[in-house]
Design a binder for these strands. Structure first.
Lengths: 255, 255
DNA sequence: TGTCATTTGTGCGTATGTATC
DNA sequence: GGATACATACGCACAAATGAC
């Protein structure tokens, strides 16, 4: 996507072809490849500036991204240090602080298996931790890294009737809650997630293409709007070895 | 307000009295005070620039801080929205109340099974995602809700030699990193956690008193000091059905 | 120990892309 | 489509921490 702005100058500064995200991805790839093992120092910002032909700001933005998702440790006066180099076998979903929560996660391919109106009965409502006898839209979604690869996640999603009209593209790359946000002008402000391990039921095993009884990481997500309204409930089943959740936490500085 | 930065000018640059942290603190104070209730939009960046007499970069840095710690939701094209008006002490950054995340030891009864000096070989270092050929103290800990109940967690902990002298009470109730903080006057400033499902090895199954091959939730924790030093590594194995990890995420990144 | 070059952190000004309204 | 507002990117300058001499 030919970028080419310029200042008030006469020359054509010709912006670099790289955005900070491109650079971040590239660096992550190199870390995974072992070019910068754990404990090693990354090249200095100045070097990266030269290498990628971008401004220092852009490099710093990329490094910030890597730090946020737990790859780097940064300190004033010394180059960034690699603190994680987990190989990307079964990829890692890094939550810097939020939201790539179940997000596009590096651009997963979502397949909508079904979508239907349901009434939650007592038992099911209890399991989902919401009010019984209410109407919801139930969807089943498979998520893959590649359009033809094995799925790493099978999700059962329940959407509040108010947002029943939400539409998903054929090969949607966004998470459902992102689509809801954009189509209904609500803001998901809070997500409560519960994670546990479980054995794959035949139902789940079939969709994830794993043996029945395989260890599954099960994440129950409750999405709330900024007004405290329950918008979406998700039960995400992750196939073993194909997915890993990473969370980076910072202790609050002053306040 | 005395702004007067400039480029190659002759005037004295005289920076604004406010840094982005000052501005962040101030805005947080105003949010706490109710000036900007939940759901309200903050003034636009341009307005804040005028108000504080700083550059747009500085304002954006402050807003980024507020987003990171869960006060704001940001979206391109529209002013930031306040999504939370409360403060959590201690750990947090977006991840709502880490207390639960990291305090799973809190209130639990910990049993120290072993403690020994080890040198991490390449393979093991790789698995733990840290530098090889380094010396660490390895501990094994069992966690129970009741002194006589079944354990819900078996942890393998690796402590940096500098903190090797850390002592645990017979029936310690604190998490190890807490003990380290208090005994060595360091501050754990960053934690990176990775979660995945796995089948219980015979070793783990024995200690958790579950059948071999049971679905296990495996959490790898890396604890870093405020100086970026790796202090502790933990591999926590959770027994199925006996434990559930709950994470409350507050909004951050909206792009 | 202290000096000093290096490196990152913070801040300024500006230009332009792109989503929202 | 147009106006507004945030996102990304360029370049520069100085402060503060590091690390080596």
């Amino acid at each position: 996507m030919a970028r080419s702005g310029q200042q008030g100058a006469i020359e054509a500064p010709v912006r670099s072809r790289f955005g900070y995200r491109d650079i971040a991805k590239r660096l992550i790839g190199e870390i995974h490849a072992g070019d910068w093992p754990v404990g090693a120092k990354l090249p200095t910002e100045a070097v990266l500036v030269d290498r990628f032909g971008v401004s220092r700001n852009t490099v710093r933005e990329a490094l910030r991204e890597l730090r946020d998702i737990g790859y780097l440790s940064k300190r004033r006066g010394t180059p960034s240090v690699v603190i994680s180099a987990v190989t990307e076998k079964g990829f890692v979903n890094s939550i810097g602080s939020i939201s790539e929560l179940l997000e596009y996660a590096g651009g997963a391919h979502n397949t909508l298996l079904s979508s239907e109106q349901v009434v939650l009965l007592r038992e099911q409502a209890l399991r989902l931790d919401c009010a019984p006898d209410t109407e919801w839209v139930r969807m089943q979604v498979l998520r893959r890294r590649d359009p033809i690869g094995l799925p790493f996640c099978y999700s059962e999603l329940f959407v509040h009737p108010r947002f029943a009209g939400v539409t998903l593209e054929a090969d949607e790359r966004r998470a459902l809650y992102r689509a809801i946000e954009q189509q209904f002008d609500v803001v998901i402000a809070r997500v409560v997630q519960e994670i546990e391990a479980a054995a794959a039921s035949s139902h789940v095993a079939l969709r994830l293409e794993v043996p029945e009884g395989s260890p599954i990481m099960l994440a129950r997500n409750h999405f709330y709007s900024d007004e405290g309204e329950l918008v979406e409930i998700g039960m995400a089943h992750f196939a073993p070895g194909r997915y890993r959740l990473r969370i980076a936490l910072d202790r609050r500085r002053a306040d």
